[in-house]
């Protein structure tokens, strides 16, 4: 057990870095939001791991003299999860609007529409088969 004493923290930081990698390496905006959620969940795990007391039990009053885990991290994370889903929904709503304005959710293609290489902007906007080419032009203004 001594050797694995920090195993929780190692896993938490591994997951954190996995989420971070997905956010910076993937170009797709939905994948980025999944990455942010993985990162967020790893932070939850970090807090809950710190609140654990060996031999403790859930912080609901039982027999006198019981050893309880720390309730404070539980409270913080409980509210953070619900706020997290609300903000995730906000991010997904933004992704939906970006799709409608640009016709794509790939980061590179969005950049290409914002900063067209060598003045090919009109050709790009008109050449696009998406129904939202007009709004893409509008969004560029």
């Amino acid at each position: 057990m001594e050797l694995l004493g920090q195993y929780n923290y190692w896993v938490v930081f591994f997951l954190m870095m996995t989420g971070f990698y997905v956010v910076i390496a993937r170009g797709n905006l939905v994948a980025k939001i999944v990455g942010l959620n993985i990162f967020q969940t790893s932070v939850f795990l970090l807090y809950i791991s710190m609140g654990k007391v060996s031999g403790g039990t859930a912080p609901i009053v039982a027999d006198p003299g019981s050893l309880y885990s720390n309730p404070l991290p539980h409270v913080l994370i409980l509210t953070a999860i619900v706020v997290g889903v609300a903000t995730t929904a906000l991010g997904l709503a933004l992704v939906v609007r970006i799709k409608e304005a640009y016709g794509t959710v790939e980061e590179d293609e969005i950049y290409a529409q914002d900063d067209p290489p060598h003045g090919s902007a009109p050709a790009l906007a008109q050449g696009s088969e998406t129904a939202t080419a007009d709004s893409a032009g509008e969004a560029r203004r």
Partner: peptide
Amino acid sequence: ALDAVDVAFTEAAVG
């Protein structure tokens, strides 16, 4: 497993 039953509850429903 880490004794956070309320949090587990929320995570299962939300996540």
